[in-house]
Design a protein around this nucleic acid. Sequence first.
DNA 1: AATATATGAGACCTTATTAATCTTATTTAT
DNA 2: ATAAATAAGATTAATAAGGTCTCATATATT
Lengths: 169, 169
Amino acid sequence: MRLTRAAEYAIRCLIYLSRQGQGRLTSRQEIARQANIPAHFLAKIAQDLAKAGLIEIRQGARGGFILCKDPAAISLLEVVEIMIGEIFLNDCVARPASCKVSYHCAVHRVWIDARDQLRATLRQVSFDQLLSDASCIPVHQETLLDTDDLEATDASGTDRNEPFHERTE
Amino acid sequence: MRLTRAAEYAIRCLIYLSRQGQGRLTSRQEIARQANIPAHFLAKIAQDLAKAGLIEIRQGARGGFILCKDPAAISLLEVVEIMIGEIFLNDCVARPASCKVSYHCAVHRVWIDARDQLRATLRQVSFDQLLSDASCIPVHQETLLDTDDLEATDASGTDRNEPFHERTE
DNA sequence: AATATATGAGACCTTATTAATCTTATTTAT
DNA sequence: ATAAATAAGATTAATAAGGTCTCATATATT
């Protein structure tokens, strides 16, 4: 009963883009590096986010991602469910057909309530509330030095606390 | 983000045993058949429940499971966490070490809150509240006629829905 | 004591999901 | 035209879920 990595990465990606500001283009490589997301994996995640209309993907040289919506208008629930599908906490809620008596079932009702509550909690959180300095990813500080063909150096995330040091080859 | 089948089966098993009443022995086969649980799988699940002290397992001829606690004293949360481990909704809550700034992280706080809320909801539900007629498993159907050679049928239908059955040691 | 009946414990297997990665396009700035 | 970037989907590796099987052990009955 755990969020997937893809969803966590999507949240990190959107936090990063929200900090950049709506409408501003950021390269996939930069996001991958700064938010510590495997670059190729991020490409796939971005496709889901684009399909849902949260970001626009710009191809070609100097391409990247652009946040389409106001961070205040994007809820955490929205992003989570784009990535993992609608939240259900148990099977008989997800597929009522699998449970003949579901409507009357006491257990069923508990899970319905729990689910509704969880979704409400996540729905109340929007991305403008998630931009505080000490968030999951380091605050971007114009590290626009060109690292060319460098893929996200996974490197055990040693740069997560020090996002501002120059990458001296 | 879904409950496992093992946990759903455990809940069904305990509902069945709760209906039988605390202290009353019921064979694994009967529970498996009535609550629609693969019998061998139930054996494995029962071991977890026994280890946690919820049931006692009686081996040998005329063996089976015995509910050790008052259904009112068993919470849904307890059973769920016996089966799937402590509930965490995301990784950085489960393993704070994986997230260097977790204490200050806004996203982290949301998941902490959501988790606490979910656990509180499940904690409030006890098994005596889950015995209503139209629950996930049928109420005491005496359809034990199909399997002839079975004699663990426990003589007559004295298993009414008395929550507090006298302990017949 | 011998036998039949039950479950215990854990190894084993199969399938599904997760988490990436790789490869071959396609698009765009210069 | 070329290099720089992402698109899209196939492929792979690792992990977990869900269930099955086998041998061991315990108990009631004869």
